[in-house]
Design a protein around this nucleic acid. Sequence first.
DNA 1: TCTGGGGTCCTAGGACCC
DNA 2: TCTGGGGTCCTAGGACCC
Length: 415
Amino acid sequence: MNRPQPQPSHRTIVHVDMNAFFASVEQATNPALRDKPIAVIGAKDRTVVLTASYAAKACGVKTGSTVYEAKKRCPSVLFVTTNPYKYMDTSRRIMRIFQQYTPIVEVCSIDEAFLDVTGSLYLFSSAETIARRIKQDIGRTFHLTCSIGVAPNKTLAKLAANLHKPDGLVRILPDDVPQCLAPIPIDKICGIGPQTTKFFHAQGIHTCGQLQQIPRSYLKKKFGVAGEWLHDVAFGRDNARVIPADEEADPKSVGHSMTLKTDAETRAEIEMHLQHLSEMVGRRLRMGMFSGRTVAVTVRYSSFTSCTKRRTFYFDLRFAADIFHAARKVWQDMPMPEPIRLVGVSVSNLRIQMHQVPLFPDERRKLNVTMALDKVNNKFGEFTIFPAALLARNNRERTIAPSWRPHGIRQAIRR
DNA sequence: TCTGGGGTCCTAGGACCC
DNA sequence: TCTGGGGTCCTAGGACCC
């Protein structure tokens, strides 16, 4: 719920951003990699750089670079295959450190969090003290660095954290907001992406100071609600709350996608992948006690264009077989004019599935079997048990998304 | 030797109902 | 019989984030 909360005249928000997180974790746990240009990549063939170390960044290796590009730009780069569980575990432990300074911690990705420390200032004398202690704690415990921004709101705190990397600590005081913001390039603001930047650059607008001159009414007409937001952030205004884990909204969709080892040429191949993806989605839905009514299938063709089709059904979907059945129906309406490199299945229109005992015996049987399978898979890892039809698939490795949120953070941080 | 995967939010247009 | 208007739900696609 987005209920309004009484705001003190000035809030103090801290944003912590781990520096080159995946790469730094690898370097911290393997001294042979320290200070070297390294790039963390996915486990599969068609992968990209997930995180580059600072030495690798210095020679132009970026997140999203292909392995080939990375090697070309930095011949000495060392590639390390991603270790999702290591990053998740480290992330969880870091988030627990934040809880020592305020209960209001919003985990926004595996390596970033907002802390509302307004109410804890009297305990720690100043926000800078909190920031320095967090840096010390993380440095001592994990041999990792982070950049911290301190400001009166989230947008400015995030901006501040990004102004000095790695290992920065930047504070924007309420009274300094206008002067501080004026020279900042607009694309430094979180939420202003490449398209918006391109539009403004074409009009000769490069800085927040210049953006401030654009009438709010014009921005609203051009960008809708986003226009009003643009006008506000140009002046550094942002009332968004820091939302702690126990108030976090339920997810709106659950999905998985994967780039195939080689492009699929037949519809039957795609169906096999749909079945596999439906298994993964179904299990995650049940773990969260959700069911959904809308199924979306996404394919990306070899030309890199994509197509998404979705359909809403009149019944709840949470079992793999039902999701697969639905996904296959959706897929049947989709064209395959060329080979396909990526397939995805996503379920939305989610609702909480109360733990009811199904009315009909076969439904009940299905639930019991499914729950037994879930137990085994949750304990021993993905696809310890899976339908025989999937035996044909040879690679089952997964790459972690940096937007992953530590599962069970609620329990973890209360311990 | 090409281009990962997981999400959120917004918009526009159409169907349908009253 | 010459053309309303509000509301809701749905789909497709795009921008953006990490």
